[in-house]
């Protein structure tokens, strides 16, 4: 077990280094970022000075080693655009994205699970299949398209909700979040709904297939024979048994939402890290791009790692890392 953990940890580090190298070189290959940021009215001498300021005149490998050394100390370079440490810029915007993901996942869970249970209990009958097909809509609709439609309807025509941005930030249980104010909730609702459609559809289908699978099992038949009502069986037994795989997948999906939120944040001008990465790529803000990718890969690797370990603990039948010979 310990060997497995160590092995996985080592793999994760290798992943991080490889990814950081790839990204670092890739961005450098696009060209000199100074020309993007510097005002066209400056003179050549100033441009040269700026290149020196940003350390862009040193050879590539030197720049990368410098970067690695600093990364070990937690310094991932200064954002060119924001004139602050890249890590700080990302961490500043992280709460906004986390808020969005939290509300989106909550909506997905609250709507998706009951719908999935209903769809599952209807099984192969028409309502069940109809709901299942409807869930396909949930992840077939292009996110940006849905977002704009939501804005058009709820923000411009009905004027119920604002069209973008984040609301006022208050304090909830000692944490600064916009979910502490009603203004904050008004702002987060539309983007959260937009973001929730995909996980909601996914959840619905997962629960549904889980329910169908369980419904054929012996213990359900025994329970029915004992005279328990369908609803009771559904909620007390089936649901609980579908929970483990559902929770695992949802864990992975939540992590994926961090990347998925890129489009939603752009449409709704939500000041999170998704919008930050799109802007940073456009402006060649190299430190932020690299820091962002590293953080995302770190989060993903951690989630994968945790999932693997959890799985192996829950289900000892799954052997770790070996083929089924």
């Amino acid at each position: 077990m310990a060997q497995f953990v160590l092995q996985r940890a080592m793999h994760a580090s290798v992943v991080l280094v490889v990814v950081s190298l790839l990204v670092f070189c890739g961005i450098y290959a696009i060209g000199n970022p100074v020309h993007v940021l510097i005002d066209p009215r400056s003179s050549q001498e100033v441009i040269d000075q700026a290149i020196r300021n940003l350390g862009l005149d040193r050879p590539l490998w030197e720049q990368y080693l410098l970067f690695l050394r600093n990364a070990m100390e937690g310094d991932l370079g200064n954002s060119y655009v924001h004139s602050r440490p890249a890590l700080q810029v990302i961490l500043e915007r992280l709460p906004a994205t986390l808020e969005l993901i939290f509300v989106a996942m909550s909506i997905a869970v609250v709507a998706g699970i009951p719908l999935g249970l209903i769809a599952g209990s209807m099984g192969e009958r028409l309502p069940g299949r109809a709901l299942s097909n409807l869930s396909v809509l949930g992840f077939s609709l292009p996110t940006f398209w849905v977002g704009l439609t939501l804005i058009l309807i709820f923000s411009i025509e009905l004027r119920w909700l604002p069209s973008g941005g984040r609301g006022e930030v208050g304090a909830l249980l000692g944490v600064r979040t916009s979910l502490a104010t009603s203004d904050g909730w008004k702002h987060v609702l539309l983007p959260a709904v937009n973001l929730s459609l995909f996980p909601m559809a996914l959840l619905m289908r997962l629960v549904r297939s889980g329910v169908i699978e369980q419904a054929n099992m012996d213990y359900v038949r025994f329970a029915r024979a004992k005279g328990l009502s369908s609803t009771r069986i559904l909620i007390a037994y089936i649901f609980r048994n579908t929970l483990i795989p559902v929770v695992t997948v949802m864990g992975l999906v939540t992590g994926g939402l961090i990347a998925f939120s890129v489009v939603t944040e752009s449409v709704f001008a939500w000041p999170g890290i998704g919008k930050l990465i799109v802007d940073s790529i456009r402006l060649l803000d190299r430190p932020v791009i690299v820091a962002y990718i590293l953080i995302v890969v770190l989060v993903f690797t951690a989630i994968n790692f945790a999932t693997d370990v959890t799985y192996s603990i829950i289900d000892p039948r799954i052997r770790l890392g070996g083929a089924n010979r």
Binding site: H11, V14, V15, V18, V19, V23, G26, I27, A29, I30, G256, I258, A259, F260, V262, V263, I277, I281, I293, V296, V297, F300, T301, N304
Partner: peptide, 22 residues
């Protein structure tokens, strides 16, 4: 499989965006 994992640990849209940027 480690290579596969590295690939999968990367969100698709970011993966694509970075590749295209490069």
């Amino acid at each position: 499989m480690r290579i596969v994992d590295i690939q999968l640990s990367f969100p698709a849209i970011l993966n694509a965006m970075i590749l295209l940027a490069v």
